[in-house]
Design a binder for these strands. Structure first.
Ligand SMILES: [Mn+2]
Ligand SMILES: [Mn+2]
Ligand SMILES: [Zn+2]
Ligand SMILES: [Zn+2]
Lengths: 145, 145
DNA sequence: ATGCAGTTTATAATGATTCTAAACTATAAG
DNA sequence: CTTATAGTTTAGAATCATTATAAACTGCAT
């Protein structure tokens, strides 16, 4: 694997030992052209399929949170009980299909937001997240004024 | 209480019996001028303060979900383990202060969104949710380009 | 007043996530 | 190449939010 050294170096540079588990998870998460949106449970299923030796759920949680803390993953705001993560750590937006829980990235430059009201008392805007909920063509649309 | 008959009628009209518990919760949730954003846990604490006879958590969940199903509440998309509800059931947006978990409504007409990319394959836009994260003035801002 | 479907409740069950503490391992030093 | 050790993994327990269960209760039609 050609990515191996890359992942090893990246982990070491972040102060994380390049263990078998972290390298295997890195491979699943980051050897992709497209953004990957996932829950721990989905990651677990993929790991079970692709890795001979089982990775414990504790390690999946530990690793995902370590990667998040180092800035290689970010958490996404969605309804529901499970936490979603995103390999795209840039500020960006999403299409969200609630029927399939499928997320699709929208680059910030592909949406224009204007006329922002001013932030509350002594607060400053840090980030803007737009979520566009989509559904099959036969559903009813809300009043978007 | 002058709102009592209003809540009683509203519940009956929705096919929900106006029980003591539902009326007490309605009073907490809907006797307000401003939008109320809350978790079940926050609602529980308010109920404990304001209602002599304890309302069980099961009833809090049942009632909130009944109100949601009838269209009097809606669930909000946020990070974290707890579910947030909103007494403003219109399509609208939020300022979100992650430090305090405080939400503030922004009316749809107070934000302009343009240049939307087209929705994925055979999907139609149903709703747009903008969340503007704010923080104390001393924090660093993300690159919003 | 009676009957009963709808509702509430305590409690158990579930599901996601975090904690614990013992076993394991990457790696720095000798 | 050993050895020592801090960092890591792991199974399982613990915790937290939410949902299910099923028995007791109550609003309301008759
Ligand atoms: Mn996290
Ligand atoms: Mn709900
Ligand atoms: Zn994304
Ligand atoms: Zn709101």
């Amino acid at each position: 694997m050609d990515h191996l050294k890359f992942h090893t170096d990246k982990l070491r540079a972040s102060g994380l030992r390049p263990t078998k588990q972290r390298l295997a998870i890195s491979k699943i998460l980051f050897n992709r052209k497209e953004t990957f949106h996932f829950t721990i449970d989905q990651l677990k299923k993929i790991a079970e399929k692709n890795i001979k030796k089982k990775i414990s759920v504790a390690t999946l949680y530990n690793t995902v949170h370590a990667f998040e803390k180092k800035g290689y993953l970010k958490e996404i705001s969605l309804k529901g009980n499970k936490t979603f993560f995103d390999t795209n750590t840039r500020s960006h937006h999403h299409f969200y299909d609630e029927e399939t829980s499928q997320l699709t990235d929208i680059k910030n430059e592909n949406i224009s937001i204007s006329n922002l009201p001013k932030a509350p008392n002594g607060k400053k805007i840090r980030d803007i997240e737009v979520t566009i909920k989509v559904a099959s063509n036969n559903q009813k649309q809300k009043n978007l004024v």
